[in-house]
């Protein structure tokens, strides 16, 4: 465990060095986050022109939701997606051999070997949106609510990591998976909106089979809509189940790996 922590610190440190090396890229990323938030807020402004709520959600509640989505997704993007998205390239080029031969868990290494530290600033951006909307709604969370929200965000990121690990592991079997990445990101977009806008089989799938629907919706509803604290237990249960299943899928898929190198 201590060794893994040391490796994690080393990998994060190396990512920070990369960030400081490409300063222009950092500033362009900063511009991107500002533009993105501005676009989302303009969009909300337009759709709320003649109405005070959409499916029971007010404008500031949706900005709060947006902030929470930013935090959850950027944690996943920073510590999973930016690294694991390269698995297809490793498989095609045969460089996956080097990862599998290292004396460390391959999933751990592929999760953290290329952290996109820029993403941490998006977390700050999400926090700003949450604070801004909270002030506008005159909402002051209690200490226990904050702790619960943080733990649910962490659980949400672990569920996202588990889902994406399964998707990435499939790359080992199918070789070309660029469209699976696209599919995963499309499904992830569903978590950016409250589950109350969905219905039928889509809602069922988002709450159970691919539980993207609960990742942001549950913590926001616990904070703003008085959702029962039992939802924390549901999130925890999902977190444990999906992490265990993803590990089994990962191990099975790695056994299928055929090296492409000489």
């Amino acid at each position: 465990m201590v060794n893994y922590l040391k490796v994690l610190v080393a990998l994060v440190r190396s990512s920070v060095l990369v960030l400081t090396e490409y300063r222009k890229v950092f500033f362009i990323n900063l511009m991107y986050w500002c533009t993105w938030a501005a676009v989302q807020i303009v969009f909300l402004d337009i759709i709320f022109l003649n109405t005070s709520s959409i499916n029971g959600w007010t404008k500031y509640e949706l900005i709060f939701f947006l902030g929470m989505n930013e935090i959850t997704f950027s944690l996943f993007n920073t510590f999973t997606f930016s690294s694991m998205a390269s698995i297809e390239r490793h498989v095609v080029r045969g460089t996956m051999d080097y990862i599998l031969l290292k004396p460390i868990n391959s999933r751990f290494l592929l999760t953290f070997n290329n952290c996109n530290i820029n993403g941490i600033f998006v977390v700050l951006f999400g926090l700003i949106l949450i604070v801004y909307s909270s002030i506008k709604m005159a909402f002051v969370p209690t200490f226990s609510q904050v702790i619960i929200a943080i733990s649910m965000i962490i659980m949400g990121s672990i569920i996202l990591n588990s889902l994406y690990s399964m998707v990435s592991a499939i790359a080992v079997v199918l070789i070309r998976t660029s469209n699976i990445n696209g599919l995963f990101l499309t499904i992830a977009t569903f978590m950016a909106y409250p589950t109350s806008i969905y219905s039928g089989i889509v809602k069922f799938a988002l709450m159970t089979v691919v539980p993207m629907g609960i990742l942001v919706d549950f913590p926001v509803r616990v904070l703003l809509k008085g959702l029962s604290y039992r939802s924390v237990l549901v999130s925890l249960l999902y977190c444990v189940i999906f992490f265990a299943v993803s590990q089994v899928v990962w191990n099975k898929c790695m056994l299928q790996y055929r090296s492409a190198s000489s």
Binding site: N50, N55, N179, G182, T189
Partner: peptide, 24 residues
């Protein structure tokens, strides 16, 4: 997977705009 992704994108937009159209 490309097909499924394309269809889901349309489904998402439709849900979102149905919610907006029904409230505004």
């Amino acid at each position: 997977f490309g097909y499924i992704s394309d269809i889901l994108y349309v489904v998402l937009k439709c849900y979102l705009w149905l919610a907006i159209a029904n409230s505004n």
